[in-house]
């Protein structure tokens, strides 16, 4: 048991919104991503975000497997989605 607050607690996936917006024209935080590992479908905003200032490591809210990773470097943006079976972006209403 930890004797103090966990300073490695994840942020929610909404914290990835800024970096995602650099690559995608739509707001992806309400898009659904399916985890390759366990099949759980969850909104990106509900997933768990690690990586701090190095980048975004988005992990499945259920099994904590990596579903998406992003890094911004001076040369550009890197994206890896090996852990995502698919991404569903809901149609914009109206």
């Amino acid at each position: 048991m930890s004797e103090h607050a966990d300073t490695n607690a994840p942020l929610d996936g909404n914290s990835a919104a800024g970096l995602l917006h650099e690559l995608f024209a739509v707001d992806l935080t309400s898009a659904n991503v399916t985890c390759v590992g366990c099949g759980t479908v969850a909104e990106i905003g509900r997933e768990r975000a690690y990586g701090g200032a190095m980048g975004v490591v988005l992990r499945c809210v259920h099994c904590e497997a990596v579903v998406l990773r992003m890094v911004r470097t001076p040369a550009g943006c890197w994206l890896e989605m090996l852990g995502a079976r698919n991404l569903f972006v809901p149609a914009v209403e109206g």
């Binding site: 490695n8 994840p10 768990r48 690690y50 990586g51 701090g52 490591v57 904590e64």
Partner: peptide
């Protein structure tokens, strides 16, 4: 001593 991790502890 900042903490930076790619996943849960």
């Amino acid at each position: 001593f900042p903490v930076l991790s790619a996943g849960p502890t």
